[in-house]
Simulated assay, not measured.
Amino acid sequence: MSDSQFVSRINQLDAVQLDNEIYKVLRGQAEEVTKYFAPGKAVKWKPEIDVLVKYLIWNYSLKKNSTTFGQQLLNLSYKNLDRRKALLLFVLSSVPNYLRERFINENFIFSRLPTAYQRSRYKGYVDQVDNFLHLLNFIWSFFFLYYGNQSRFVEKILGLRNYSSDMNRPRSIGYSYMTRELLWHGLIELFTIGLPMIDLKVVQRLWNDMWVPKKKEITIVTSCKLESNALCAYCNQLPIFPRWAGCPHVFCYYCLEALFLTMDPYRCPLCNNQLYYKNVKSCLNT
């Protein structure tokens, strides 16, 4: 493709994505309308409703303006699109999905077949065709990345190519928007890296030491009595390999080991007593 006809790949992909999002919005509005119908009525005719929504989108976009709504938003259009190709584009984009949904629904088509063998056989054929079409679209995506045009295989079949309607118009770049995006992504990376490195329990303890009135010192006990409903003072779960470090509360082995790796002595989050690693004992042996 010559430079004068170059169309960015990302713009073509964005146009297809915008078309899909517009369809989903209108399909959601149609579901809001049909939810007041009798139960099961709208579900029975769901494929037909989907085709009707796609037809309305096609009628007011490709049929009248030779561009889809997504292309109009990005100043793109099809080259050499006539009425016949526009109709074929609608048929090839909508009919296969409609047939797939109808054939996959065994109660609508396959239930008319006389034997279970025939039902499973024809359903297998439909699944194979469906898988082949998906594989074809997947392979064509690599050709699109190489050649840079015709993002969908149906465009290749009809010989449709994208071109920009404002090729000679200078593109304006919002540097203020780019600055905000760079700042935002920088903050996200900072929070993503920094937050896991902050020990919130230590921050809470420092806050309590500064603003919360200190409690009276609790006498350090010399034994640990493990009750059936005892919970870890740090994770508030049933203690795993329960340990005791001098205060009346019980800790998990892993919680206490991790806490003493960060600081020694460590203050109990419940009674604010200072705990020392040298006093750690197993509650199972006392």
Rank of each mutant, 00 (worst) to 15 (best):
R161A: 07
E106V: 09
N11V: 01
I57G: 05
C271D: 12
F69R: 06
I220L: 13
N273P: 09
N75I: 00
Q17F: 14
Y254K: 07
R121F: 10
L226W: 00
R112K: 14
E189Q: 14
R119M: 08
S94Q: 14
N80S: 07
K225Y: 02
R84C: 07
V25W: 11
Q17G: 11
L99P: 05
R9L: 08
S94V: 15
A42R: 08
Y23P: 09
L231N: 07
K85E: 12
L81W: 05
Q72V: 03
V53C: 13
V154N: 12
K281L: 13
V203I: 10
K216A: 14
F153P: 00
E257S: 13
P47L: 13
W211M: 00
W45Y: 15
V250W: 02
Y254T: 08
Y254R: 12
L284N: 09
G159V: 04
V129I: 12
F251G: 03
I49L: 15
S141D: 12
K215L: 10
S77A: 10
V7G: 01
K54F: 08
L190C: 04
N137M: 06
N162V: 05
D130E: 01
A258Q: 14
F191M: 06
V203C: 04
Y254W: 05
D264Q: 08
V126A: 09
L113Y: 03
C247N: 10
G159R: 05
I240K: 15
I104V: 07
K201L: 14
P114V: 03
A233L: 04
N97P: 06
P213A: 03
W244G: 03
T286A: 14
Q5L: 09
T262D: 09
Q237C: 14
F143L: 12
N279T: 03
P213W: 00
C232I: 05
W140I: 03
L284I: 03
R121E: 02
P213T: 02
S228V: 02
K214F: 00
R84N: 08
P213D: 07
K85H: 08
N97C: 09
W184A: 12
L259A: 05
T286H: 15
Q237W: 11
V53N: 05
Y78L: 10
Q17N: 14
I198H: 02
Y177C: 06
Q118Y: 02
Q17H: 13
D264V: 10
V221W: 09
S172M: 08
S4D: 05
L284R: 04
N131G: 13
L231A: 08
Q128W: 12
